[in-house]
């Protein structure tokens, strides 16, 4: 019932080519980790389709087991222990899905306009994102955009002379996050070499600033430079 299974599909919990594969991890552990990552990161992660599917199945099986126990006269106090375990897992599942929905609601236009992000959504989340943004578009259109002069009716741009979509809320990738790694990580590039900043300040920074992370020590770091490592499962967020 508590069996763990490798994923192998490039998702956060699918990194099994190391020691972790020797230590059996329960799916609940994996769900907890996915939940924590999702909570702590500014951007939305790849949807853990296989993990969520397995969790749902395990929950269903357990619900049936609890019913059987209750009917077969097993001490209700013991049955309640199984119920508590079930409640905890269900909370994690709901919370995981909820956080993702909240992120979609918050950054809907940005996600829909960024393939990389849109492709991280589940099928149902994609539908939700589209419906959600249509609802909002319609609302903004009816009340404002359709009443504005020509050339000013764009949803995403202030006017047709805007060079980029300057009205879309985007997640702050420069947010600082708390993180930890299990294994030593060296040569993490912290500063953007070419972040488009023409500040003098940037020229003063050394080009190469390899930063290293010791295992099992907490760090506060800007999310952007470690984004790929987090997505690849090498860094955990707290």
């Amino acid at each position: 019932m508590a069996s763990g299974d490798g994923e192998g599909e490039g998702s956060v919990s699918g990194d099994i080519d190391d020691l972790e594969s020797l230590i059996s991890t329960t799916d609940v552990e994996r769900l907890k980790r996915a939940w924590r990552q999702e909570k702590a990161a500014p951007e939305i992660f790849q949807f853990e389709a296989a993990l969520i599917q397995r969790i749902k199945e395990q929950i269903q099986l357990m619900e049936e087991t609890v019913e059987d126990f209750a009917e077969s006269g097993i001490d209700p106090l013991t049955v309640s222990l199984y119920q508590m375990d079930l409640d905890r897992t269900q909370f994690l599942l709901r919370s995981y899905l909820r956080i993702r929905l909240q992120k979609i609601e918050k950054y809907m236009f940005h996600i829909l306009n960024t393939d990389e992000l849109f492709n991280r959504l589940s099928r149902e989340e994609k539908s939700f994102a589209e419906r959600c943004s249509n609802d909002l578009k319609m609302h903004l259109d009816e009340n404002i955009l359709s009443k504005l002069p020509d050339n000013y009716q764009s949803l995403l741009k202030q006017s047709i002379i805007s060079e980029e979509t300057d009205m879309v809320p985007k997640p702050q990738l420069d947010t600082f996050v708390v993180c930890k790694t299990k294994y030593y990580l060296g040569h993490i590039q912290l500063e953007d070499i070419n972040n488009g900043n023409t500040d003098d300040r940037v020229n003063q920074r050394p080009l190469e600033e390899p930063f290293e992370m010791e295992p099992n020590v907490l760090y506060f770091v800007r999310y952007k430079p470690i984004k790929k490592l987090v997505e690849g499962g090498k860094i955990d967020l707290y």
Partner: peptide, 22 residues
């Protein structure tokens, strides 16, 4: 839209907002 998502997953997401207790 939200209801539609939840019914596709067969999960009510507007409950269970705080961690469960005994």
């Amino acid at each position: 839209s939200l209801k539609s998502y939840m019914s596709r997953l067969d999960l009510d997401l507007v409950v269970d907002m705080v961690p469960p207790k005994d």
